[in-house]
């Protein structure tokens, strides 16, 4: 389990990194935290001709409260998000999800952007990004472009990034008013990828009905699944167990779970529905207590 040889580049700036990426055509990979890429290289499942190491690109590691969104540099360590009071204030869903992301030693090195770009269907952070309607700022030769979460997560282990592009930052738009969050997953062991998971955000309007409802399932399809139809059906309704059950049932109607060593497709579907119900109830309880 030793990696094949490669050329190593350690750019100091994003333009330099983009130029180096172009220099090697499609044969180079950028390395962020490397917590997925390095083992793949050790197993020789990945064998890039060159590695462009983003760890020295200071402009990619930041976390700041902007005018209308929290802006997170792609190279921000997951541990930094976990410890950020700013995130706690504006995007607490991260703090519910991050303890489930592997282990602190991995989060110390693993980056937010790296997890999003890998887009493992059972990963927590893409689901959080989807639930928070994150916007992805992508840097390329001709400048930046921004895509939404629905556009960014393009399919199994793939994203909207072109081979010569690098994710610069993620914007998490503020959610005005008081929101409730819910997050739950079932994994084989603490820190494992989810067999199935769900995340929810709810907000009540002045009339006591929901004026914001988001529900995301993960581990049950080729990426995070935003349950748009279920969300729409909850808007304008008053919180109730029946509402959560209906929303959960609607959410799993649109998923295509697969079987693997650890769980059958049927199991994933059943549990996704249960967890959807639970995260909605959890988010609603926060509203009530909040």
């Amino acid at each position: 389990m030793k990696p094949a040889a490669f050329v190593y580049r350690a750019p100091a700036s994003l333009p330099e990194a983009l130029a180096q990426l172009r220099e090697f055509g499609g044969d180079a990979r950028v390395i962020a935290g490397g917590q997925t890429l390095v083992p793949a290289m050790s197993m020789r499942l990945a064998r890039p001709a060159a590695l462009i190491d983003l760890n020295g690109v200071a402009e990619l590691a930041f976390l700041r409260a902007g005018a209308d969104a929290i802006e997170i540099g792609a190279m921000t360590r997951q541990r930094t998000l976990e410890r950020s009071a700013e995130i706690g204030r504006h995007a607490r869903l991260f703090h519910l999800a991050l303890p489930h992301v592997a282990h602190f030693q991995i989060r110390n090195r693993g980056t937010f952007g790296g997890s999003l770009c890998h887009n493992d269907p059972a990963a927590e952070l893409p689901a959080v990004a989807a639930a928070l309607s994150a916007e992805f700022v992508i840097a390329g030769a001709s400048g930046d472009r921004t895509v939404g979460a629905d556009g960014f997560f393009a399919g199994l282990l793939s994203t909207a990034l072109e081979p010569d592009e690098i994710l610069r930052a993620i914007r998490i738009p503020y959610l005005p008013g008081s929101c409730g969050f819910g997050f739950a997953e079932v994994a084989r062991r603490h820190g494992d990828f989810a067999l199935a998971g769900a995340a929810a955000v709810l907000r009540l309007g002045g009339d006591g009905t929901l004026d914001l409802a988001r529900l995301v399932l993960f581990g049950v399809d080729d990426g995070p699944v935003r349950a748009h139809a279920a969300e729409a059906a909850m808007l304008g309704e008053r919180p109730s167990d029946d509402l959560w059950s209906a929303a959960a049932a609607a959410a799993v109607a649109g998923i295509s779970p697969v079987a693997d060593l650890h769980a059958s497709a049927l199991y994933r579907r059943e549990v996704a529905e249960t967890l959807a119900r639970r995260v909605l109830r959890q988010a609603a309880a926060e509203l009530r207590d909040g």
Binding site: Y8, G34, P39, R79, I106
Partner: peptide
């Protein structure tokens, strides 16, 4: 394990505990 699961190779890198098998 050399794939970042077992933690036997954990060291501090600039104060942060990391798997040394997941870094070059």
């Amino acid at each position: 394990c050399e794939h970042g699961v077992c933690g036997a190779c954990t060291v501090l890198v600039d104060g942060a505990a990391c798997r040394s098998c997941l870094l070059f």
